[in-house]
Amino acid sequence: MEGVFTQTLVSGLLMGFIYALIAVGLTMIFGMMDIVNFAHGDYLMVAMYFAYWFFVLFGMDPLQSLPLVTLLLFGLGIITYYILIKPIINAPMLSQIFVTFGVLIFLRGLAQFFWKADYRMIPQTWLSGNINFFDVYIGIPQLTAAGGAILCNGLILWFLKKTRLGMALEAVSEDKEAARLMGINSDRMFALAWGIGIATVGVAGSLLTSFYYVFPEVGANFGLVAFVVVALGGFGSVAGAFIAGIIVGLVEVLGGYLIAPSLKFMFVLILYLAVVFIRPQGLMGKK
């Protein structure tokens, strides 16, 4: 019994790192321009299909195609910004919500049209099997994904805090006007934030494809989880998203383990409501 419990905790922890990676992209975009990308989970879905088709068509393992998928998603983020987001950057919130919701439906519609509602999975990847660590079995794909997510999160934090470009990005998110006076082109910074924000789900999607099904609605739950993580961590806080991702991963598996597996998603949503009611700024958000 105790073994099952530890096992559950470990799997929740590993998933939490991936949630954190997905949420980091969302929180970056939100923190910079006050726009919630409702289609975030669906960009993840697109990334997963890219990884899947690179495997089917060219026999590339998701780990091999990861840089390509990430680059494609980076481009997609930039294109999204210039075509759809730039025109509504000062529009009423309602227009902003509908545009990103429109993107959500558009991407899901495309996936349904081209690939139908089938569940697809890569049958054989480089990574498979388990390792036994003090009687806890850890799936190698999950472990790799979690490691990749930690690495990627670390890279983003380093980029934002230590590089000139990253600091410029942070400056725009702190104060657009002051950044403009310092000669920072906020338009380019917004585009970069969309590029990086969407590229992170490129990484996450590639890592997930090693052990997760791909289907047109796969982004729905991941997207919602990402909102919860962002709200819990504090809108705009990258470090907060990392911690919150782990908490959400653990809450999900613990709720499933202690009460009922079919209800586990409900606990995540209740966590969201509890956070926004009690501490609207999240764990590490600025008021």
């Binding site: 545009v99 558009f106 349904q112 509602a117």
Partner: peptide, 23 residues
Amino acid sequence: SEGQGIDMIIYSLLIIVLAIARP
């Protein structure tokens, strides 16, 4: 089933265009 998703594509484009150009 061949056209699955087509309606979503059409109305998503419609709402994106409406939200940007004609709220």
